[in-house]
């Protein structure tokens, strides 16, 4: 089942063309990776899909909703920005409660909150203020916030950026588990090993254009590459004329 359909998506910031007509699609329960160097247009694309930014051209559909139906889309998606923080003066538990209240009413609220607590693995530390948390703890809280409401589509921009191996592994495992349960993920990352481990399919983006897309295994075969880094270098090298 097609969950996201992006066709000829364009985004301009004044004279700067951040996205120059990209197209891709994602399917239910898939972890889709958007890969590219800094300034390639990854975050801009994810922000448009999250309804934060408007598009300059093209079409975007999420679960058959046109991207202009913001309120409907917001009810079924979850977005985690790159290097995001949390409200430092709130306790971890209050942070989760604040976001639960946007989605769920009544009895389900408690159930969702309990699930958020479980996902965060922060236990008693949830009763402390977020300003006392380490970077890894904050990221775990944010992941819990993103996934506790059982979104149909989770958009994660650099989900493990700046985390140590243990914290990063824990977060990757959570993403894998949720994808198996049916959540669709769009993930952006600089970490090619992470992409290799997590994603089913990827699109390589460079200078606002998608230069290659497909299943990771097949792409490795096609470019006779050992890893995604090699694929990327070969593709960008080949497509440099663009």
């Amino acid at each position: 089942m097609e969950v996201v359909k992006v066709e000829n998506l364009q985004k301009n910031f004044g004279k700067v063309e951040a996205l120059r007509g990209i197209s891709f699609e994602c399917f239910k329960g898939e972890i889709f990776g958007l890969i590219g160097p800094n300034g390639a247009g990854k975050s801009t694309c994810l922000r448009i899909l999250s309804t934060i930014l408007s598009k300059s051209g093209g079409e975007v559909k999420i679960f058959d909703y046109d991207i202009s139906k913001k309120m409907e889309i917001k009810k079924i998606i979850s977005y985690l920005p790159e290097d995001a923080g949390a409200y430092k003066n709130l306790k971890g538990i209050d942070y989760l409660k604040f976001f639960v209240n946007f989605f769920i009413d009544g009895k389900d609220r408690e159930k969702t909150l309990e699930y958020g607590i479980e996902l965060s693995s922060l236990n008693e530390r949830l009763n402390d203020k977020i300003e006392t948390y380490s970077k890894g703890m904050v990221r775990r809280l944010l992941i819990a916030r993103s996934l506790m409401v059982e979104p149909k589509l989770a958009i994660l921009d650099e989900p493990t950026s700046g985390l140590d191996v243990i914290n990063a592994t824990q977060i990757r495992d959570i993403i894998k588990k949720k994808a198996k349960e049916g959540t669709t993920f769009i993930v952006s990352s600089h970490n090619m090993l992470e992409v290799d481990y997590l994603c089913d399919r990827i699109s390589l983006i460079n200078n606002g254009l998608i230069v290659e897309s497909g299943n990771i295994g097949k792409l490795k075969e096609k470019y006779k590459a050992q890893n995604i880094e090699e694929i990327f270098v070969k593709v960008v090298g080949v497509k440099n004329d663009f």
Binding site: T51, K88, F99, F102
Partner: peptide, 10 residues
């Protein structure tokens, strides 16, 4: 802290 970005997707 990019909390505004998160809030805007609620």
């Amino acid at each position: 802290n990019k909390t505004l970005e998160t809030l805007l997707t609620m």
